[in-house]
Design a protein around this nucleic acid. Structure first.
Length: 321
DNA sequence: GCGTCCAGGTCTACC
DNA sequence: GGTAGACCTGGACGC
């Protein structure tokens, strides 16, 4: 999509530079460029030579171009037309910290490998991959709503269209990245027009209404992180179109967002059989997973879904779509 | 080529 | 409180 390289003389200098030392174990590439192809902040971001060119939108709606260069210490350069003030710098640092999963208890997750062969496999295959959570509530809500009731291919079509038609351009060291639309932009769009343009179906109304709620004032991702997991989920579920599944996708707390696709995979891995009606085994899978992995459900979820090609050699896993 | 089914949920009306 | 049915769309599938 809309990512292109500008000529060197056009590339601006960063307006803010900082570095983050990430505790071991940490693999930068696996963290920002996950094996199954999940984006870090936006599908249009660019990754080349251990460097990620992407963006972040601050709470005051300023869009900042970002260049992250990896290693144990991640060098971050922020690009903006005007200088960032101290509050904006602090917020940006906090957002990148959250995105890189600096505060995750990855050691605790790996400790499960001593008694759990599945975790041992995941640890060995994806050692150093931190889950992280980049992007704010609206970006993640768009992702969650576009995931509902459609195969991944259709989700990508809808998200791509929203970004292309309503998104914004930002540059990061000369790379042009098209970023997610702002909530205020989609709140002002006629949901019928948006639905027709991007083939969103009933989701158009949810996106428009959620955009309006967020544009009017709602806790950002860092504020939700400061809440208890239960309080954050409850607050997110007040958004139109955000139910129990989507709230866990959006929440900065580690959840276990089982849908019928992931429930089927977990059932196959945990119980060795393919459920005829995956929707009906979600509660059973969730209960068993909680007993087996406790506080590390989200890590297991992300690791397992990114290690499916390797796991499919050991477990009977239904072909992906 | 055409008809049918259903997919990485949520909401609402009804009991 | 729980449950069935509606909701958009397009790709897969059977014929």
């Amino acid at each position: 999509m809309a990512v292109k390289k500008l000529l060197p003389e056009e590339a601006p200098k960063p307006s803010f530079v900082f570095s983050l030392r990430v505790p071991a174990p940490f693999d930068f590439r696996l963290t920002v460029r996950k094996p199954a192809g999940w984006h870090w902040a936006v599908p249009t971001e660019l990754f080349e030579k251990d460097t990620l060119f992407t963006a972040a939108r601050l709470t005051n709606q300023r869009l900042i171009g970002l260049k992250l260069r990896g290693g144990r210490t991640v060098e971050v350069a922020a690009y903006s037309k005007r200088t960032l003030d101290e509050a904006e710098k602090t917020e940006l640092i906090d957002r990148v910290r959250l995105g890189l999963g600096l505060d995750e208890d990855i050691e605790g997750f790996y400790a499960l490998a001593e008694k759990d062969s599945l975790i041992e496999t995941l640890k060995n295959d994806l050692y150093g991959m931190r889950v992280g959570l980049a992007g704010d509530v609206f970006e993640r809500a768009l992702l969650a709503i576009c995931l509902q009731m459609v195969p991944m291919q259709r989700s990508n079509q809808m998200m791509g269209c929203l970004i292309e038609k309503y998104g914004e351009n930002v540059t990061a060291d000369g790379r042009l990245v098209r970023y997610w639309p702002a909530a205020g932009r989609l709140a002002a769009v006629d949901p019928e027009d948006m639905g027709r343009a991007c083939k969103l179906g009933y989701r158009a109304k949810f996106i428009n209404q959620t955009a309006a709620v967020l544009a009017a004032g709602f806790p950002d991702i860092l504020e939700l992180k400061a809440m208890s997991p239960q309080a954050a989920l409850a607050r997110l579920r007040t958004l139109p179109g955000i139910g129990p599944y989507s709230a866990q996708i959006v929440s900065p707390h580690m959840g276990f967002p089982l849908d019928i696709w992931s429930a089927r995979i977990f059932h196959e891995v945990m119980f060795g059989s393919t459920p005829k009606e995956p929707r009906k085994v979600i509660a059973k899978v969730e209960e068993a997973a909680k007993r087996r992995w406790g506080n590390y459900l989200w890590h297991v979820f992300v690791y397992l879904l990114h290690d499916l090609p390797a796991l499919s050699k050991r477990y009977k896993i239904t072909k992906l779509v």
